[in-house]
Every structure is written in C-alpha cells, then in structure tokens.
C-alpha cells in the first residue's frame, strides 16, 4: 500500500506516477469510495482537465502567439478537455443502463473508474507529447501537415492507453466476461460521439490564413456525411 504525500504538488506527481504504472487499485490503500480502493474520480477529472488543457494549448500555438493567435491557444486549451469530457458525459447514461441490464451494476463504479482513469492516462500522455508537437510546428509550417501530426499524437496516446485500460478491466472481465462486450460497445459509442464532437468544436489548430473564432462559420454539419461524401467522391473519381 502506497501512502501519498500530503504536499499538494508532490501528491499530484505521485498520484500521476501511480496512475501510469501497472499497480493494482489496492496500492492506493483504503479509500472511502463505493468503487473500493483506487484513485478518486475527482482527482482523475483533474488530470484529464490539466493534461488536455496543456496539449490543447500546444495544438493552438501553430499560428504563434502574436495578436489574435493567442486567442486560438486559449480556445484550443478549453476545447480539448471539453471534447473528451463532453463525449464521455453523453455516453454515460446508456453505459449505466446497459450495464444494469446485463447484470453488471455491482461493478459499475469500478468500471466507470477504469474508463475515467484511462481518459486521465490519455490526457497525461498527450501532455507528454506536446513538446513533440511544438518541435513539429517549429520545423514544419504547413497547416495540413500540422493537422496530420496532431492526429498522429492523438492516435499514439489512445493506443498507448489501451494497456492500462486492459489492466484495469481484467479483474472485471475475470469476474464476469460480459464486461468485455460492454467495454467494446462503449468504445464504439464513444468514438461515434467523439468524432462528431471534434468536428463541431473545430478549429483546434487554427488556420493562420483565417480569422480566429471559437467555432467555424460552417460548423453545423455532420462529420460522417462529409467523410462519406469525400470517400464516395474519391471512389466515383476512380471510374
């Protein structure tokens, strides 16, 4: 059992270290929580907010910091945590009801914490990758390449976070294999919502040739239809 420091800054980094390492929840000692020992949800929410805020600020710095471009840094710093948390919140009611219906209600608190802890891990990973984004921006001035690079950073963080997710879910799956199905269903639903949320909340990077706004003028649209039309157009163009 690990005892965290009482100093808030030290406690912050020790908690982050515990979160990233492959330690069981019992290492957190006895915490008064219905989900048993483990990191508290509000602490995990704090890691999500801070980590995503840091990466968002880095994303928005593509156009520099002069004049209105500073506003893009601020907007993106707010939008990345909003994207993650809002997408998660939208999927929560159906996750709860389906867990109940499948007889997994007793484990819901632990399942929820496993998912939130994974989001926190993604956020910490993104914050750690932010310097790479800064170097890329510094060495490559193309907006299109910046978009691709940021997509790559998100993909790396999401992929790497699968390990702690599996680790946290493994005891639940061993207790009841239906947790595996529920996890997959949640991932599909979450990605479905998050893609549309990301489309609506753009721009995250900010095209330097356009004015800085929180939302694009043409923001109301459907990501799936746009992508579908692009793919369909590409297929039609082949023939």
């Amino acid at each position: 059992m690990t005892t965290l420091s009482t100093h808030p800054v030290r406690r912050f980094f020790e908690g982050m270290h515990l979160l990233l390492r492959p330690v069981p929840d019992e290492a957190y000692g006895s915490v008064s929580s219905i989900a048993g020992p483990g990191p508290r949800l509000r602490v995990l929410a704090m890691y999500i907010a801070l980590g995503d805020f840091m990466y968002g600020a880095g994303m928005g710095a593509f156009g520099g910091f002069a004049g209105q471009r500073m506003l893009q840094v601020f907007f993106s710093a707010i939008k990345v945590p909003l994207l993650i948390m809002a997408s998660f919140a939208l999927t929560l009611p159906s996750f709860f009801v389906l867990n109940t219906l499948l007889g997994l209600r007793a484990d819901f608190a632990r399942a929820l914490r496993a998912l939130v802890a994974t989001q926190a891990t993604v956020a910490i990973l993104l914050a750690a990758l932010a310097p790479y984004t800064a170097v890329w921006y510094w060495s490559n001035g193309t907006y299109h390449h910046a978009t691709l690079f940021n997509g790559l950073m998100f993909a790396i963080a999401a992929f790497a976070a699968q390990w702690p997710l599996r680790r946290r879910y493994q005891p639940l799956i061993q207790r009841n294999p239906k947790h595996r199905k529920m996890l997959r269903a949640w991932i599909v639903l979450y990605v479905f919502v998050a893609i549309q949320m990301a489309w609506i909340l753009r721009p995250f990077i900010g095209d330097p040739t356009r004015s800085t706004t929180f939302f694009r003028e043409d923001t109301w649209g459907n990501a799936y239809l746009i992508v579908g039309e692009l793919i369909w157009g590409a297929i039609k163009g082949l023939f």
Partner: peptide, 11 residues
C-alpha cells in the same frame, strides 16, 4: 443525450 447532440449539430 446522444440523439439530442446529433440533432443539434447536424442538418
């Protein structure tokens, strides 16, 4: 909530 989100954001 998911239906509401997509209803608001798509035309």
């Amino acid at each position: 909530p998911i239906v509401a989100f997509f209803s608001v954001t798509t035309t």
